[in-house]
Design a protein around this nucleic acid. Sequence first.
DNA 1: CCTTTATGGTATGACATCATACCATCTGGA
DNA 2: TCCAGATGGTATGATGTCATACCATAAAGG
Lengths: 152, 152
Amino acid sequence: MKRQDPNRQLEFLLSEVVRLQHRVYNQRFRATGLQQTQVAALIHLDRVEQLSQTDLAARLGMRKAATGTLIDGLEGKGLVERRRGREDRRLQLVSITDAGRDVVERVDEMAEGLATGYRRGISRDERVQLVSILQRLRENLRRMDVASAEPD
Amino acid sequence: MKRQDPNRQLEFLLSEVVRLQHRVYNQRFRATGLQQTQVAALIHLDRVEQLSQTDLAARLGMRKAATGTLIDGLEGKGLVERRRGREDRRLQLVSITDAGRDVVERVDEMAEGLATGYRRGISRDERVQLVSILQRLRENLRRMDVASAEPD
DNA sequence: CCTTTATGGTATGACATCATACCATCTGGA
DNA sequence: TCCAGATGGTATGATGTCATACCATAAAGG
């Protein structure tokens, strides 16, 4: 039962990196009052016109409930709008506002600066590789998630 | 200002994967009553005899306060012990108990099963590569973290 | 020695996410 | 047509992590 060095155990390493990442980004974005996840949501919305909450949840890898409160926050700041679906009135269609687009613009510039330090010592090829592997990991995890998540 | 596809933006992708990962693992480990992070802490402690809380915090990428409550939980279950440092009485030296070692053993077996689905379609070489890149990313983030975190 | 500063840990209040349970609306078959 | 299940969303209570502020002990300089 030779156990992995926890420093190399993929799952733990990923968690650690993401914890650090959230901390660093949230410190830097303090001025905007936005969390990294909210920024992610805004950027998703900036590229697609509108999205139901369930769609958005799937893209962020979150649950519906959490996505709802996430959007509450963005809506409260006027960065995002909700409209009931016209055909299917269960849907909450979320779309970004002009104010939201401005924020994305500003945040993008900040992110530019951060990315420099973030990517130091990692080549373009490696980044491409990394993304590719992470996408497969995500696929695997999605499969494992639904496999056990009947009741939602 | 050509913006990245959020599906490929490294930072977001990492966050998403880790959210999924936590969900899947916590579902599966429900029976043990442990969170993935607690498991990580146990495994660290299983390999080093003892560790101060600050050390442990550094290894997990967390802050001191959060690490304290994490350990409270493990201590409450009897998986871990705290002793005041004999030479430096500020230190809380944390070490794993026999019960803790048993849990690690059991969890390791469960993790074995999970890892199969987790790693599907990802070669050994790719995993090595991934770990290497993540370690550099971690280094970068640590630098960016302390760079701004004077007051703790 | 004695004071200042650094360091380990804890307390507190905020917030994000989760799981579960629930309500509203749609859809497909009897 | 209408009822049963599926699906979108919300409400609630728990927990994990954070940032900040604080206390206790140690180390360093006069």
